[in-house]
Computed example of a mutant assay.
Amino acid sequence: MLKKDLHEANRLSWNAATRAHNSHKGDQARFLREGGSTLFPEELELLGELRGRSLLHLQCNSGQDTLSLAARGALVTGVDISDEAIGFARSLSAGSGLPGTFERSDVYDWLASAPPARYDIVFCSYGVTYWLSDLKPWAEGISRVLKPGGRFVLVEFHPVLWLFDEKLRLTYPYGGGHHVPEAVGVGDYVALSGKGLVPSGYEEGVRDFKNPHACHGFQWGLGDVINPFLRNGLLLERLEEYCYANGWNGIQGMREAPGHRYLLPEGVPELPLMFGLSVRKPG
């Protein structure tokens, strides 16, 4: 069941956090103008050819990935609940010269009102399912806006990762939409990860950020994510699992690998830290 009151709390928390996150990223418009990209190989490999494709980027945050996709020829629309993020994305589009349409909305409201069969690709990545209070209408909405033959692509942190806290202590339940209230709100994970999440060059920016607004997450398992799409008639093309995290250095003692990837600490058995999903609408 949708929990719109908790979504509204998350909007406020993300507004505050987004300002801190972007304070570390310097002149992002110049970075994009000069051919820079914030995308990782995993999402590009799953997305495939983008030139001329209509692409809907849900929970697009401040638009850096959306505009990196536009630079590869996609016709992009980004949607996010955060006013701060969408305002920044619009400015970034203008400053970089990369075209994109950005709309501020709760993803559920946007999907419910969008015209059907409009997009070749719907895309989400990195820390999106945690903020969704009900996956059934999410999957239904995505299925509805895809053109026949269109695909939904997701690159996401693995639900196994969210069983643990930052010290790798088993803390949280697996899946089922379990509600996780967080009194500290959305944190400054960009400062925590440093250069891993800032290919444009990390800057110190806001120090010791403390979010004044609490936030609310939801624990979903792999089956919770995939099955609603299958029930809506989409076909599973690929499911990949990766034993590293792109850009995110959120567990104490993580080891950096080439390509801004992070591995679990030395001596810890390998666990999947991300997964990639591609499903296709028949047609």
Rank of each mutant, 00 (worst) to 15 (best):
S91E: 12
W162G: 05
L161S: 15
Y174D: 01
I226L: 14
G149H: 11
P159D: 01
E140K: 15
L170P: 10
H24S: 04
N15L: 09
V206I: 14
A112F: 01
G73V: 12
P228G: 04
E241R: 14
G250N: 13
V128P: 00
F88S: 10
L46Q: 13
G150Y: 08
A139C: 05
L2N: 08
Q64I: 07
A139M: 06
V128N: 11
P137F: 06
V79H: 00
Q219I: 00
L170V: 03
R231N: 07
S133D: 07
L111D: 05
W220L: 01
S200P: 07
D80S: 12
S37M: 10
S23N: 13
A214G: 05
G233M: 07
S68I: 11
C124P: 00
L47Q: 08
A29M: 06
L111W: 01
V145S: 11
H57E: 05
G205E: 06
N232V: 00
L230K: 15
A74I: 03
V184G: 00
A70W: 01
A94R: 00
E166P: 09
L230V: 15
C215Y: 04
G127V: 06
E8W: 07
V180Y: 05
E84I: 01
G95I: 07
L230D: 09
A85P: 00
E140N: 11
S125N: 11
G276K: 03
K210T: 00
A114Y: 01
F31A: 11
S113L: 10
V268H: 06
T38D: 00
G187N: 05
Q64N: 10
R238G: 05
S133I: 00
